[in-house]
Amino acid sequence: MSKFLNNKYLTLDTYTPGEQPQDMQYIKLNTNESPFPPAPNVLKAINSREIENLRLYSDPECQNLREKLAGLYGVSSDQVYLSNGSDDILNFAFMAFSGNGTQAAFPDISYGFYKVFANLQGTQYTEIPLKEDFSIDYQEYCNLDKFIVIANPNAPTGLTLSISEIERILKSNPNHVVVIDEAYVDFGAESCYPLINRYENLLVVQTFSKSRSMAGARLGFALGPKELIADLNKIKYSTNPYNVNRMTLLAGEATIDANDYYLEKCKVIAQNRDYTTKELEKQGFKVLPSKANFILVKYEGIEGKFIYEQLKKSGILIRHFSTFRIKDYNRITIGTKEQMNVFLREVNKIVSEG
């Protein structure tokens, strides 16, 4: 760290991404990526002619993709916002709707970036503990009078709030924005985006990274009342208007055209999740009931870190967290049936040997 760094960033705790080791070929079940490739028409969209057009700036309004998303979700195009991954949108939301006297609130066990963004923007925040079963108590978020961010399904638990519970949070906090981060919603949960026409304080954030096989392309979108979308655009046009590149926009448009392909892959991943859950429970694991493309599991009597380390030696990456309440758990991304069978075989060896 240099002597020139602004003092307000000296103590900033950064987000720790899932590891991406290059020393060998791994079965990657650690970063919630899709095990399936993009749809064939997406690959066709990224052709040599379009690569030549990289000399040109991208459309800052992302008009074609916004219109396609609006059509898919049955909203108007001015209720759609696009950016360089959902992380970008979350950061802009903290920038736009918190700080300057407005505090934030989010679960104590959730997506690690929320705390980072709050600190980055100088926002005071409250981390609300999950219940003993790791679920979110929606009543803890009612009448908070704060900027609220909730992942639904939550990460890394995979547990969900109902739409009616989210609606109660919205009703009781009319003077502050409530962000519902739906990065994993397509794997079996219900989106609350239909509520954006009823609540002026709701912003729904989704991503192309998980269910649409585009983690490496960096593309996220938000759905909300047009006034909130205009607020995000104000931030965007004050930082980087061209923050979604030409190739990503083309891939995104082709992805929406192939929506049925991705819905089918989500269904397969959900089936693999349920299969893996049952097989792990047969082995003696405790598995939280997930609606995401991952599961959070533990084996009583064996440290989560030990299981993680042994699987890594076998060429399988999973995610271990050092957070006290979940340090005995590991998060396992759901891959193909073949990948999950390899994982199940190797983890069975570990618990059998103790």
Rank of each mutant, 00 (worst) to 15 (best):
I89R: 02
L159Q: 14
K282V: 10
N7T: 13
L250D: 04
N175C: 00
G112L: 11
N119Y: 07
E127C: 05
I302E: 00
R168V: 02
S238Q: 13
E338C: 08
L144V: 08
N341A: 10
E279L: 12
L223S: 00
I295Q: 04
L69T: 00
E303N: 10
I169A: 08
S83A: 15
L311R: 03
K313I: 04
T11N: 14
Q206T: 08
I235E: 11
K313M: 11
A93K: 05
D23I: 08
Y329C: 07
Y57S: 13
Q271P: 09
E52A: 14
Q20K: 15
Q22N: 13
V149S: 04
Y184W: 12
T248D: 07
A254N: 06
D137A: 11
L250W: 06
M95F: 14
E279C: 04
K131R: 15
A189Q: 05
I318Y: 01
L69Q: 06
P194A: 09
Q22I: 11
N143D: 11
Y141R: 08
N7W: 10
A292C: 09
K313H: 10
P38S: 12
T102G: 03
V178G: 08
S2A: 12
I229P: 03
T336Y: 03
E165A: 09
R319G: 03
K291A: 13
L72T: 04
Q271G: 00
F36Y: 15
S290L: 02
P38R: 13
E132Q: 13
F343E: 07
N100V: 01
N330D: 10
Y299D: 06
N197E: 14
C62Q: 10
V351A: 02
G315N: 01
P107M: 10
T239E: 12
N7Y: 13
D59G: 06
P153A: 07
I46T: 01
A39E: 02
K278E: 14
Y114N: 14
K68W: 00
A217I: 09
R168F: 03
P241H: 04
C192S: 11
